[in-house]
Design a protein around this nucleic acid. Structure first.
Length: 281
DNA sequence: ATGGCAGAAGCATTCTGA
């Protein structure tokens, strides 16, 4: 089972590139961020033509997330809900469409577009930290329900200096600060594992390159797009790769897709546990 | 230290992103 995440920086600007990519790679699930379009204007038909079902949670101009999947997503939820800590005031996060979750193949898919935060002394940075604290509370509740979780998206945080092309230059700054790294750790709480780091311990692997200063050509990137899986899924992970090729496209997104491959043989059998059990596996 | 590049809105230029 292939599960991918891609910040496309406007789905309407990136439509043909996104369709080309899913036709080539054939992911079972693709989580999109920064769709930048209201739900009634999302281009559904090209995805449906390629055999995909689409769930959207967007807004005008900014943010916006979507889940594209071969199997129709179930129990789709938009935004935060059910957080135990009501001091976090989850209603205050409703105007920015940054989280959509659903169940697919028995896995809880959580797709996030974490705020960038601008700079450490800004109100946007406070918003980023509050948003991540709310995500932590949200995951606490999801964890209590049990089951397998796959949390992915654009986190706008480099988890370590290995994830920045020039860590000294950006030390302590936005996307690289200890404050952000610690709040991310509190989101994960050791219960969610960075898929990429199971397979790769070295630096030099990026998922985002700035549009400016020839960053892609000079390979000056950051790894800020991540796929985290709950512990019971780690043994089923076959790979985690960043497909940097779409970043070389004409008029590309500044992000590349990240993808995991899960071996779900022993889970698939449970899907056909119906009375007319014609699937004898 | 600053701006650089890109997209949306909307028609000149501003806001936002990372």
């Amino acid at each position: 089972m292939l599960i991918a995440s891609w910040n496309v920086n406007s789905i309407r600007s990136r439509l043909s590139q996104t369709i080309d990519w899913i036709n080539k790679v054939s992911p079972d699930v693709l989580c999109l961020q920064e769709t930048k379009v209201m739900d009634d204007s999302f281009p559904l038909e090209p995805f449906e033509k390629s055999g995909y079902s689409v769930e959207v949670y967007g807004q005008k101009s900014y943010n916006g997330v979507a889940i594209i999947s071969k199997i129709k997503a179930e129990n789709v939820k938009k935004g935060f809900y059910g957080c135990a800590d009501y001091d976090l005031n989850i209603e205050s996060f409703l105007d920015q469409k940054r989280l959509i979750s659903a169940e697919i193949n028995g896995i809880k898919i959580i797709n996030v577009y974490v705020p960038n935060g601008s700079s450490l002394d800004s109100d946007k940075f406070k918003y980023k930290i509050n948003w991540l604290n709310c995500l932590a509370s949200f995951l606490d509740e999801e964890e209590k329900k049990g089951g397998m979780i796959c949390l992915m998206g654009d986190f706008n945080i480099a988890p370590s200096n290995l994830d920045i092309h020039d860590p000294k230059k950006y030390e302590g700054g936005i996307m690289a600060s200890d404050i952000e790294r610690n709040v991310l750790k509190n989101v994960l709480k050791g219960r969610l594992i960075d898929s990429f780091r199971i397979f790769e311990e070295n630096t030099g692997h990026w998922s985002w390159w700035d549009y400016r200063n020839n960053a892609y050509e000079l390979n000056k990137g950051w790894r800020i797009d991540h796929i985290y899986v709950s512990k019971e899924l780690t043994s089923k992970l076959k790979s985690c790769v960043i497909d940097s090729l779409p970043r070389a496209n004409l008029r590309p997104s500044d992000h590349a897709p990240v993808m995991i491959d899960l071996n779900l043989k022993d889970i698939d059998t449970n899907l056909f546990d119906e009375e007319d059990n014609f699937f004898e596996i």
